[in-house]
Lab assay of single mutants.
Amino acid sequence: AVSDRLIGRKGVVMEAISPQNSGLVKVDGETWRATSGTVLDVGEEVSVKAIEGVKLVVEKLE
């Protein structure tokens, strides 16, 4: 699937994400809805860990 190529890629949070609410991330110039187990603020760099349906699962870049 086209989304599989995104796993491991870096992105930037465009709309804040929390465990309760999905947000938006931009990866390779495309905007995706994303979820995370932690709070991520706009502008934070993330990496794509998995894909669930049409949402990316991301975590903060260390």
Rank of each mutant, 00 (worst) to 15 (best):
E62Y: 15
V39D: 08
V57A: 05
K26H: 09
V42I: 08
D28T: 06
I51W: 07
K55M: 11
L56D: 01
E45H: 14
V39F: 15
V2N: 11
M14I: 10
I51T: 07
V12R: 08
G11L: 01
A50M: 07
E59W: 07
T38N: 10
W32H: 09
V42M: 08
Q20I: 15
V57I: 11
V42N: 06
V42R: 14
V54H: 15
K26Q: 11
T35D: 09
V54K: 14
E44K: 05
E15S: 08
K49S: 12
D4V: 06
D4L: 08
V25K: 00
G8L: 03
G43M: 08
L40C: 05
L6S: 02
E45V: 15
V46L: 02
I17P: 02
L6C: 03
S22I: 12
N21C: 06
E30W: 04
E62L: 14
S3W: 06
W32A: 03
T38K: 10
V13L: 03
V12F: 07
G29F: 07
E30C: 06
D4T: 07
V57Y: 12
V25H: 00
K26Y: 08
G53S: 05
K55C: 06
V42A: 08
D41V: 11
V54Y: 13
V12P: 02
K49L: 13
T38M: 14
V54P: 11
L40E: 02
V39L: 13
N21L: 15
R33L: 14
D28W: 06
P19N: 05
V57M: 07
I7K: 04
S18A: 13
E15I: 14
M14W: 08
N21F: 14
R33W: 13
S22F: 11
K49E: 05
V46H: 01
S3E: 10
V46W: 00
T35P: 00
V2S: 10
G43W: 07
I51C: 04
A50T: 06
V12Y: 12
E52L: 13
V57R: 09
E44H: 08
G37V: 14
I51N: 04
R5P: 06
W32G: 01
P19V: 06
E59S: 09
K55P: 02
V25Q: 00
G29P: 04
I51K: 05
E44T: 15
I17L: 05
V48E: 01
V58L: 03
R5C: 06
E44G: 04
R5Y: 13
G29V: 06
V57N: 04
K60H: 07
R33D: 10
I17Y: 01
V12Q: 08
G23Y: 06
V57P: 00
L40V: 08
W32L: 04
G11N: 01
E62R: 12
K49C: 05
T38Y: 14
G53W: 04
V48R: 00
G29K: 15
G23K: 01
T31C: 05
E44V: 11
S36Y: 02
I51G: 03
R9A: 08
G37K: 11
R33M: 08
S3G: 09
T31P: 05
S47D: 05
E15M: 12
G11Y: 01
S36Q: 01
R9T: 09
S22C: 05
L61W: 11
P19D: 05
V46F: 03
N21W: 11
D28G: 08
A50W: 07
S47G: 07
A50L: 04
V48M: 02
K26R: 13
K60F: 04
S47Q: 10
V13M: 03
E62F: 15
S3R: 06
G11M: 02
I7P: 03
W32C: 04
G29S: 10
V39T: 14
T31N: 10
L56H: 01
I17E: 02
V54L: 08
G37E: 10
S18K: 10
E44I: 13
V13T: 05
V42D: 04
K10V: 14
G37H: 15
E30N: 10
V58A: 02
S47H: 10
L40M: 09
I7E: 03
V48F: 01
E15Y: 09
S36L: 01
I7N: 03
G8E: 03
L24K: 12
E62V: 12
L6M: 06
E45R: 09
T35Y: 06
M14S: 10
E52I: 13
G43R: 14
G53P: 03
K10Y: 13
N21G: 14
L24T: 08
V58R: 00
V13I: 08
D41R: 15
E30L: 13
S47P: 01
S3T: 14
G23F: 03
M14E: 08
V39M: 10
S47R: 15
E52G: 04
A16G: 14
S18Y: 14
G37L: 12
V46K: 00
S36M: 01
G29N: 10
I17D: 01
A16W: 08
D28C: 05
E44A: 12
K60G: 07
W32E: 02
K26I: 14
R5G: 11
E52N: 11
M14R: 06
L61G: 06
V2T: 12
P19M: 06
V25P: 00
E15K: 13
Q20M: 10
D41L: 13
I17K: 01
L24W: 15
V12D: 06
K55R: 14
D41T: 15
G8R: 03
S18L: 06
I7C: 04
L61Q: 09
V12W: 12
V46C: 05
V13F: 00
K60T: 06
V58Y: 00
D41N: 09
A16Y: 10
G53E: 05
D28I: 13
S22P: 13
E44Q: 15
D41A: 13
T38Q: 10
E62K: 08
K49N: 06
E44C: 05
E15G: 08
K10G: 07
M14D: 05
E59L: 06
K26W: 08
A1M: 11
G8T: 03
Q20V: 12
G23W: 03
N21D: 07
V57D: 03
S22N: 13
K49P: 01
M14L: 11
E52R: 11
P19H: 07
I51V: 10
V42E: 07
A50N: 07
D41F: 13
V58S: 00
K49M: 07
E15A: 15
L24H: 07
P19Y: 07
V46R: 00
S47I: 13
S22W: 09
A1L: 07
G23A: 02
G8N: 07
L6D: 02
M14F: 08
W32Y: 11
E62Q: 15
R33E: 14
